[in-house]
């Protein structure tokens, strides 16, 4: 058995296990981990994973393509049993959407990251993909390791120091005005119709969720969820929602925070799993929420980031890639980053 040498001239903040046999993924993931000061323990398959001392590993990056025929959840289970308590990043290029979303039921999965070009399910002879975006992954891991307990807005997903715009939303009218401001920025940047549509969908759905689904009473019961969405609503001062947005030419970022922290992993999983079985993607009857908002936001975004601290805040951020063509953005797929269960 080969010995694992972990000598490094650089100061490291821990190590990460990376399970992949895809050269582009090795390179891009190693760059992402390196950018946040994490050394790499590489394994070509789950059978070759190396034991690590308790507390040494900060994260496991599992490439589901190490065995494209395996049940994705079984692969995750294998990894989490080998490295108990270590959070997992899953990435994939083969049938990426389906296989990545299939891992969501596992609580150890905190980040699902498509390989560039692997999202759209094309026939195998047309299939071609790179590794996951190292810049986006590094930002996601930096946020996780920082263990922030407050909303961060759009800034982490823009060039460092880039300005963002804020708006407080306290009513349906405010929501319309805020949405209009976001779309004015998109129009001023002369983004294509499809890019503008994705921004509009994400912004509106995040605001609707924060206005109607988030507010809770003292007993934790949703107070606005059953309201008729056609009627205007006015939020009390402590129910108001903060919108932050900006665009640095690469990413258009929209972030919406409420003061309740009610979003949980189960809700996200139920919503996104509708993408695995489109026959289940039906709007709920009645006049309250249609139950499709998060799914549509995820479909519109290239990254969806959910951060919640129960009783304090939920912040959901949608990142739309706007440099290059619409096709380029679609090929990047939709990553999901969850900061819901404490520090990564």
């Amino acid at each position: 058995m080969a010995l694992l040498s972990t000598d490094s001239p650089l100061p490291l903040h821990g190590r990460g296990a990376v399970v992949t046999r895809h050269p582009a993924t090795i390179r891009r993931v190693a760059q992402a981990l390196g950018a946040v000061g994490i050394g790499v323990n590489h394994a070509l398959s789950t059978d070759q994973m190396q034991k690590a001392s308790v507390g040494q590993l900060r994260v496991v990056v599992l490439d589901l393509d190490v065995d494209p025929d395996a049940d994705p959840l079984a692969l995750v289970r294998q990894v989490s049993e080998f490295y108990p308590g270590v959070p997992v990043v899953v990435c994939a290029g083969v049938h990426a959407k389906k296989r990545l979303l299939a891992t969501l039921p596992s609580p150890v999965v905190r980040h699902i990251v498509p390989k560039l070009g692997g999202w759209v399910d094309v026939p195998s002879e047309q299939r071609s993909f790179d590794g996951p975006d190292e810049q986006d992954l590094a930002v996601a891991l930096r946020r996780a390791f920082a263990d922030e307990a407050s909303p961060l807005g759009a800034q982490p997903y823009l060039i460092q120091g880039f300005s963002t715009t804020e708006a407080i939303v306290g009513s349906t009218e405010d929501k319309e005005r805020a949405l209009e401001s976001v779309m004015q920025l998109a129009a001023a940047l002369e983004l294509s119709d499809e890019k503008k549509r994705r921004i509009e969908v994400a912004t509106e759905e995040l605001l609707l969720n924060a206005i109607y689904d988030a507010p809770r009473d003292e007993a934790g019961e949703a107070t606005h969820a059953k309201l008729d969405r056609r009627n205007p609503v006015k939020l009390a001062g402590d129910q108001q929602v903060k919108l932050r947005y900006g665009c640095d030419g690469r990413n258009f970022v929209v972030s919406v925070a409420d003061r309740y922290g009610a979003l949980d992993r189960g809700s996200i999983q139920r919503s996104l799993s509708k993408l695995l079985d489109p026959q289940r993607a039906r709007p709920a009857p009645g006049t309250s929420g249609a139950g499709l908002g998060l799914m549509l936001t995820y479909g519109a975004a290239n990254q969806l980031i959910a951060h919640a601290v129960p009783g304090r805040f939920t912040e959901v951020t949608a990142v739309m890639h706007v440099s290059g063509s619409n096709r380029t953005a679609l090929a990047r797929g939709s990553a999901l980053h969850l900061y819901l269960d404490g520090a990564l």
Binding site: E204, P283, L292
Partner: peptide, 8 residues
């Protein structure tokens, strides 16, 4: 140009 979840 766009359809919201409620529009669906």
């Amino acid at each position: 140009r766009s359809i919201s979840s409620l529009g669906v």
